[in-house]
């Protein structure tokens, strides 16, 4: 799974207090990629939804999306697209060595 693009999210009001970035990925998000995020913070995974939803939260980061989607959202407490891109690659398993 590769990161295709990272762009500022237009959904400004909903993520009040956070800078949101929408990440497009090359393949649909998988459950294994979601579960691998646990090391980054507190993960809530609603597996039994029509499209299983996940949200990973820590003090300085959130990552949310759905299994099967070609995109997910990252939130940072500051406007840093480079940091967002780094987290995007981690979440997509683009550079999994950063987790180990």
């Amino acid at each position: 799974m590769k990161v295709v693009s990272v762009s500022p999210s237009p959904d400004l009001c909903s993520e009040a207090g956070w800078y949101g970035f929408d990440v497009c990925i090359s393949e649909p998000m998988t459950e294994s990629a979601v579960l691998a995020l646990k090391s980054l913070g507190h993960l809530v995974y609603l597996a039994s939804l029509k499209k299983p939803f996940f949200v990973l939260k820590s003090e300085s980061l959130f990552i949310k999306g759905s299994v099967g989607s070609l995109s997910f959202r990252i939130g940072l407490p500051y406007n840093d697209s480079a940091q967002a891109s780094s987290y995007a690659r981690i979440a997509a398993g683009d550079c999994r060595t950063l987790l180990s």
Binding site: S14, E15, L49, K50, K51, V55, K64, G65
Partner: peptide, 24 residues
């Protein structure tokens, strides 16, 4: 209880194609 309003709105849009408002 258990998910934030923005997460709920995200689920409703992404999984169910339903648009609501969330936040303040």
């Amino acid at each position: 209880d258990g998910i934030s309003p923005s997460d709920a709105a995200f689920i409703l849009r992404d999984s169910y194609q339903i648009i609501v408002r969330s936040g303040l």
